[in-house]
Structure formats: C-alpha cells, structure tokens
Computed example of a mutant assay.
Amino acid sequence: MKISDILKLDAIIADLKAKNKPEAIKELSQAVSPVAGAEVEDITAVLLEREHLGSTGIGGGIAIPHGKLETVKSIAVGFGRSIKGIEFESLDNRPVHLFFLLLTPEHSTGGHLKVLAQISKLLKMDQFKERLLAAGSTEQIHQIILENDEEF
C-alpha cells in the first residue's frame, strides 16, 4: 500500500483558512470526513483529545494529527497546507505549514504505525517539503505526493 492509495484528492486542502490549532483540526476533519466515513465532530474530538497528550506538531513546519475511531473502517489520510503557517504548539515552537491527518480504525495498530512511518519518511526529504510548499493547486500537491510515494 502507498499513501497515495489512501489519500484522495478531495481530502487535500491547498490553502487552509484556519488561524489556530482547533480551527486547523476542524478544517482538516471536514476534508477527510467523507473519505473516512465518520462525522466531522467525532474526528475533531478524537484529534483534539490526542493533542492534549502532546502536540503532533513535530517541528520543521510539520504536524501529523492522528487518531483512531470506531466508525472508521479503513485507514484515511488527509493533507492540508497553510501558506501563512499556524501556531500548533510544535516541538520547535514554530508555525506549521504542512499537515498530514491520519485516521485509523480503533484496533488497527500495525497499519497506523506503518502509515505514520511512511509519512515521516516522506517529510524528511527537504525537496519534497519545498515542492509541497510551492505547489500551485490541490492537483499539484496530489501529484507531488504520488511521485514521491513508495510501498510500505
């Protein structure tokens, strides 16, 4: 499986409107809700609950909000980009520009970890991040992810 197999064009936001962490999580939840087959409120709640344990803002302008939900039947991924950057309580205290949202079924430990590892691997490539930041459209973002994605 690849990230691009589970990241649908409709779950990509090229320019997040959110100004803070709760707004960003809600906006990303709205994008991934139809793909995940879960209610926006449920997704938002589980992601905010996870944020209370510690920020998923990993530094370098990146956040990977993630959570597990009973109503989610298969792994769902969303992507959002904030041109201005969003304060997300990141490890390096810098604004976040790139967001990968990950939702998995309640009892899917292996799949959850594999997808997190693949996203992390992609985001370690500086050129990949630079291309995502410079992309002009949702379609370009999707294409960049397709081009860099590998089996996991």
Rank of each mutant, 00 (worst) to 15 (best):
E27P: 05
I6M: 14
I145H: 02
K121F: 12
L98Y: 11
H107V: 08
G80V: 06
E87H: 06
R94Q: 11
I58A: 08
L53N: 03
D5G: 13
S90V: 10
S120C: 14
K129M: 15
S90C: 11
Q118E: 07
A134I: 09
P95C: 10
Q140G: 02
S4D: 10
L132M: 15
T44K: 03
I64A: 04
L116I: 08
I145L: 07
S82P: 11
E23Y: 00
Q30S: 07
L102Q: 08
L16R: 00
L69F: 02
S108W: 05
V35L: 07
L123M: 07
E89I: 07
E51W: 06
L91R: 13
E150F: 12
E89D: 15
E23N: 10
T71F: 02
G59E: 00
L91D: 09
I3K: 08
L123C: 12
L48T: 01
Q140R: 10
A11F: 09
F79C: 01
I145Q: 00
S29N: 01
K8A: 13
I13W: 00
H112G: 09
S29P: 10
K124R: 15
I43N: 02
E39I: 02
T138V: 15
K17M: 12
E130D: 15
A135L: 14
E39N: 07
S108P: 08
D126C: 14
I12F: 06
R50E: 05
H107S: 13
A117G: 14
S4C: 13
R81M: 07
P95Q: 12
E39W: 03
M125I: 08
L98H: 06
G59Q: 06
L16Y: 01
F128V: 10
I86N: 02
I75E: 05
A14P: 14
G54E: 08
E87N: 08
S90R: 07
T104L: 02
E147T: 06
M125D: 14
F128T: 06
S90A: 15
H97E: 04
D5Y: 13
V115E: 06
A31Y: 01
L146A: 12
A24M: 01
E41L: 05
S120H: 10
L28T: 03
G57N: 00
I119L: 14
D92T: 10
E49H: 06
L122T: 06
L116E: 04
T138R: 15
L132C: 09
L47A: 00
E49T: 09
A38Y: 09
F100H: 03
A36E: 07
I58E: 03
L28D: 03
L132T: 02
D42Q: 04
E27W: 03
V96R: 06
S4K: 06
K8E: 10
N148L: 10
L116A: 03
F79E: 01
N20T: 10
V96M: 05
K124M: 13
S108Y: 12
H66S: 01
L47D: 04
P105G: 14
E130A: 15
L113I: 12
E51I: 07
K114A: 14
G110C: 10
T71Y: 00
